[in-house]
Nucleic acid binder design. Structure first.
Lengths: 133, 133
DNA sequence: GTAGAATCTGACGTTGATGTCAGGTTCAAC
DNA sequence: GTTGAACCTGACATCAACGTCAGATTCTAC
């Protein structure tokens, strides 16, 4: 058995992932995270849960919704068994959404760079003027 | 005068930008969009409003909030007059946020590519099996 | 001047991920 | 067995960018 069985409770998982306890419970409620339970109904997580939560955070940060993640996770876990034309469609739509949003962010970042350049220049001149007064 | 004075009303601006009428009023309420008014209080927009709305949509799509946009717009309009250390800070924070989110989206897109590859392969095999039955 | 389309303001509804609080239970250590 | 920390469920709160609806007013064309 490779089962090290080093189970942790929700507080530790929260500390190790940065996700709030509330969020972890929410993820479970959305079917994105599983846990075994203690006889007293306290949640127990394996080491693998840490990676799973990190994956969830990544996908959330990339703008995926809980629903979308719930649709795609089976494909992540069961490499090919759970794939349907619908899930493939979700993947491709999401990929498109990400592409357009990346484009918007790149353009916006360029705009910000111009603004930052102008702003630092302006503030530098202001500071110089103040120093020579 | 270069004032062509081809003013348009909110319905036309909506049609030309893709933003809903509701959104345009909301933008104005947030101080992101200005309009003159007809004697009967109907909004009138110049051609420049089209570009402004497109800019707003871009910034929203890049994840900026109304508040952030409201802070930065003066810097866009008055190249250097309205810049303070605070606005510069907002710009830099927003740039950082965009960078980390782009990173998340790139990683997620890579994951999706792997999934899509596996999925198309699996579905192709399924289809082939069905055809040869 | 009248009809019908467009617009106005104001207010309440929605959605999704999470915060927060209440009241009760369980766990770990002593 | 007692205590204090951690945990449980359930419920309501939040926030932002809208949607939507109501009731009134204005514009445009005839």
């Amino acid at each position: 058995m490779t089962e090290k069985d080093t189970l942790m409770r929700i507080g530790e998982l929260s500390a190790r992932t940065g996700a709030s306890v509330r969020s972890l419970r929410y993820y479970e409620q959305q079917g994105l995270l599983t846990s075994t339970r203690t006889t007293g109904a306290h949640r127990l997580y394996t080491e693998a849960a840490v990676d799973r939560v990190h994956l969830l955070r990544l996908l959330y940060e990339a703008g995926l919704s809980s629903d979308t993640i719930a649709t795609l996770l089976p494909c992540v876990d069961a490499p090919a068994e759970k794939v349907t034309v619908d899930t493939l469609d979700v993947m491709q739509r999401e990929r498109e959404r990400i592409n357009t949003q990346i484009a918007a962010m790149l353009t916006t970042r360029d705009h910000l760079d111009v603004l930052i350049e102008a702003a630092t220049g302006h503030l530098d001149r202001q500071r110089d003027a103040a120093l020579t007064t």
